[in-house]
Simulated scan of single mutants.
Amino acid sequence: MPLFHAAWLYYLSNPALVINGLALFYAVAGSWLVFAGQWRSGRGTAQLTAGVSTGLDDDSAALNNRVSRMFGRIGLGCLALAMLLSLLSTLA
């Protein structure tokens, strides 16, 4: 039996489990993005407080903050999607 055919039959017999697996994937990816965004912004703040010269001008620092906020927003979106998928799996 081909692999994709077996996977499709498994999906048809256990849709809630497959949807929960997808929700788990989005939750892990989202939590990693939130963590990475916090780590990026915390690293920049720690360097500024310690007085370490980062060699970045104001534009680069602003870009770094924008990227950190983008990480957080996409991460929270992934976490919200994971919650939605998890709730939908209870209906399946």
Results as ranks from 00 to 15, higher is better:
A29F: 12
L88H: 03
A62H: 07
M83W: 15
V28E: 05
L3S: 12
F35S: 08
D58M: 05
G51T: 02
G42S: 04
A82W: 01
M83I: 12
L76F: 08
A46N: 05
L84E: 08
S53Y: 13
W39E: 10
D57Y: 05
L33K: 01
L76A: 05
M70W: 14
V52T: 05
T90E: 14
W32R: 11
A23S: 03
Q38K: 11
L9K: 12
T45M: 09
G37A: 01
L3D: 15
G77N: 03
T90V: 09
G44P: 00
G55V: 02
A82T: 00
L22R: 05
G44Q: 10
I19L: 14
R69I: 07
V18W: 09
T54A: 06
L88W: 08
A92Q: 07
L3R: 13
T54S: 11
A6F: 10
D58G: 00
G72R: 11
S68A: 15
L56R: 14
L56I: 02
A29L: 14
V52Y: 08
A16C: 01
R40Q: 14
D59M: 07
T45V: 04
N64A: 15
V67I: 15
A92V: 06
P2E: 09
V28I: 11
T45C: 00
Y26S: 09
N20Y: 11
V67Q: 04
L3M: 12
V28K: 03
A36L: 09
G55N: 02
L76T: 03
L56Y: 14
L85F: 08
N14M: 13
T54I: 04
I74V: 15
R69L: 13
G75T: 00
A16K: 06
R69D: 15
I74K: 03
A50R: 06
